Lab assay of single mutants.
Amino acid sequence: PDEFRDPLMDTLMTDPVRLPSGTIMDRSIILRHLLNSPTDPFNRQTLTESMLEPVPELKEQIQAWMREKQN
Results as ranks from 00 to 15, higher is better:
D40M: 00
L19N: 04
Q45G: 12
S37M: 04
K59V: 08
P1L: 01
L31R: 12
P16M: 01
M66A: 12
S28T: 15
G22V: 01
P41V: 06
W65G: 06
D15W: 04
P7G: 02
M51C: 13
R18I: 01
R18E: 06
E53P: 00
V55Q: 11
L31N: 15
I24F: 03
D40Q: 02
E57M: 11
F42M: 11
Q63R: 11
S50G: 14
E49H: 01
V17F: 12
P1E: 04
S37V: 05
P7D: 07
T23H: 12
N71C: 08
H33Q: 08
L31T: 14
S50L: 05
N71Y: 14
M25F: 09
G22C: 04
L19E: 03
P56M: 09
L52S: 04
T23G: 07
R32F: 05
I62R: 02
E3Y: 10
E68P: 06
T39K: 11
L35K: 15
L12F: 10
W65V: 08
M9T: 09
P1I: 07
R32S: 12
I29T: 12
T39A: 08
E49F: 03
I62L: 03
E53A: 11
T11V: 13
T23R: 14
T48S: 13
L19F: 05
V55L: 11
T11G: 04
N43L: 04
A64G: 12
L47C: 13
M51D: 15
S37A: 09
D15R: 03
E68D: 11
D2N: 11
M13K: 01
K59Q: 10
G22S: 02
P7F: 03
E3G: 02
D6L: 00
S37C: 10
Q61W: 00
P1R: 06
D10L: 05
D6N: 04
T46E: 13
N36Q: 12
P38A: 10
P38T: 12
F4G: 02
R27G: 01
T46G: 13
P7R: 04
A64W: 07
N43H: 13
A64M: 12
L34S: 03
D40T: 01
L31C: 12
N43C: 03
D6Y: 08
L34V: 07
M9V: 08
I30K: 00
E68A: 12
M13Q: 02
R44G: 15
L34D: 09
L8P: 08
R44V: 07
R27S: 02
F4H: 09
P16Y: 01
L8S: 02
T46I: 10
Q61H: 15
I24S: 01
Q63D: 13
T14V: 11
E68C: 07
H33Y: 09
D6G: 01
E3L: 07
P16I: 12
D10W: 02
E53G: 03
E68F: 09
R44P: 03
D26E: 12
F42A: 08
V17Y: 03
P1A: 05
L8F: 11
R67F: 13
R44N: 15
M13I: 13
P20I: 02
T11A: 07
I30L: 06
M25P: 04
E57P: 05
D2K: 13
T14H: 09
D2I: 14
E53S: 07
S28V: 10
K69S: 11
L12I: 14
S28M: 12
I24A: 07
P56D: 04
L8T: 11
M66T: 14
T39I: 05
L52K: 05
Q63C: 06
E3N: 08
M9W: 02
T14G: 07
S37P: 03
P20W: 01
R18T: 01
S28A: 15
M25K: 03
L35F: 12
Q63V: 12
I30P: 03
M13G: 06
T48A: 08
T11N: 12
Q63H: 15
P54D: 04
E68G: 08
